[in-house]
C-alpha cells in the first residue's frame, strides 16, 4: 500500500469523483435554496477579517490523535506542517483542540489559527486546497486469524465479531456502521466511540487494540489510523481496503483529503496549493512513512 497524490486531472476525471461530485451538487443546491430567502446580515460571526501574523504558520490540531497529530509533534500532519512552514519560511505555532464537534467553529473559524492540515476535500466548514492524498476505509484483522474479508458482501461478516466506530452526530455515522446495518448485520457489531477516553493516548485507536487483543475479529476503520497502528502492533496485522468503494446509492468509503483554511482566505489557499504541488515527493514520503493506505485514482467503483 502506498499513498498516492492526485493530479487535477484525476480529480475531475476519475469515476470515484462521482460521489463527491454528487455531494457537492447537493450542497450547492441546498446553499442556493437556503440563501435565496435570506437578506444579507451583518453578523456577529462575520466580525473583522482575521489577518495572519507575519512569520508564523498558525496550525490548529488535535493534541492527542496519532497518526495525525499530537502535542509531541509525532504525527504525519505535524511533519507536513513542518515542511509547509519551511516552504513558507515561517515557524509553526499550534493551537491544540480536540477534533470533535465544534473543532472548526472554535479554532479555524474563531481565528485561533489559519490552517488545518487535514480536512475532507470540499468540506463545508473550510476553504479547501486540492486533495493531497486519497485513502479508504479498510478491513483490519490479525493475520493469524485468516479472516480474509474483502467485501461488505462477504457472508462471513454475519458471523465475525466486528468493530466499528461510532460518531453519534444525529443522522451521521461512520460509513462502515451504515453498510453493515443495511445488510442487517447488527448483533455481532461492537461500537467504539470515536471520541474514546481522552485521558488515554490516541483515543480513536482503541478499536485497533481490540483487534490486537482478540476482543473482536475484524475492525472496519479509516485507513490512516489502521495502517499506522497495524505497523506498530506486536502481532502481524492484515489491512485490506473495503469493497465496494461506494456502497450504492451513495455511501462512500474513499475520501480525498485536503488542507483547510478559512473561507475567504483565497490567498493562503492558493499558496498551499503551490506548496502541495512543489513538495509533492516529500509529502508522499511522509505519508508512506506512516503507512497511510492509498487508493489508485483510476480504480474507482
Amino acid at each position: 500500500m502506498y499513498s498516492r497524490f492526485l493530479s487535477p486531472q484525476e480529480v475531475t476525471q476519475t469515476p470515484l469523483r462521482l460521489c463527491v461530485f454528487l455531494c457537492a451538487f447537493a450542497w450547492t443546491v441546498l446553499f442556493l435554496t437556503s440563501c435565496a430567502d435570506r437578506k444579507p446580515v451583518a453578523t456577529v460571526a462575520a466580525a473583522q477579517p482575521i489577518t495572519r501574523p507575519p512569520g508564523v504558520l498558525r496550525v490548529c490540531a488535535d493534541p492527542n490523535n496519532l497518526p495525525f497529530s499530537n502535542q509531541r509533534l509525532e504525527g504525519f500532519e505535524n511533519k507536513i506542517a513542518d515542511l509547509l512552514a519551511q516552504d513558507l519560511d515561517e515557524r509553526v505555532e499550534y493551537t491544540w483542540w480536540a477534533q470533535r464537534r465544534g473543532f472548526f467553529r472554535n479554532t479555524l473559524k474563531a481565528g485561533m489559527c489559519d490552517v488545518v492540515i487535514g480536512v475532507p476535500s470540499g468540506f463545508e466548514m473550510a476553504l479547501t486546497t486540492k486533495p493531497y492524498y486519497r485513502s479508504t476505509y479498510v478491513f483490519l484483522s490479525r493475520k493469524d486469524r485468516h479472516v480474509d474479508v474483502k467485501s461488505f458482501d462477504d457472508p462471513a461478516l454475519r458471523k465475525l465479531r466486528i468493530g466499528v466506530q461510532i460518531i453519534g452526530d444525529d443522522q451521521s455515522n461512520a460509513p462502515p456502521a451504515h453498510a453493515l446495518t443495511r445488510r442487517n448485520i447488527v448483533d455481532n457489531v461492537k461500537g467504539f466511540t470515536l471520541y474514546g477516553d481522552y485521558s488515554q493516548q490516541n483515543p480513536p485507536a482503541r478499536i485497533v487494540d481490540a483487534v490486537e487483543n482478540g476482543d473482536i475479529d475484524l475492525a472496519i476503520v479509516w485507513g490512516p489510523l489502521a495502517g499506522y497502528f497495524a505497523k506498530q502492533s506486536r502481532v502481524p496485522m492484515e489491512v485490506v481496503p473495503v469493497s465496494p468503494q461506494i456502497d450504492q446509492p451513495f455511501l462512500p468509503f474513499v475520501f480525498d483529503i485536503s488542507m483547510g483554511v478559512r473561507r475567504g482566505d483565497q490567498e493562503l489557499r492558493d499558496r498551499l496549493d503551490e506548496f502541495l504541488e512543489n513538495r509533492r515527493p516529500e509529502i508522499e514520503q511522509i505519508l508512506k512513512d506512516y503507512s497511510v493506505p492509498g487508493v489508485e485514482g483510476g480504480s474507482g467503483a
Binding site: 477534533q99 487535514g118 463545508e124 461512520a174 489510523l225
Partner: peptide, 9 residues
C-alpha cells in the same frame, strides 16, 4: 462530508 478525530464520513 464531515470530519471528526481524523476520520472522514
Amino acid at each position: 462530508a464531515n470530519y471528526i478525530a481524523g476520520t472522514p464520513y
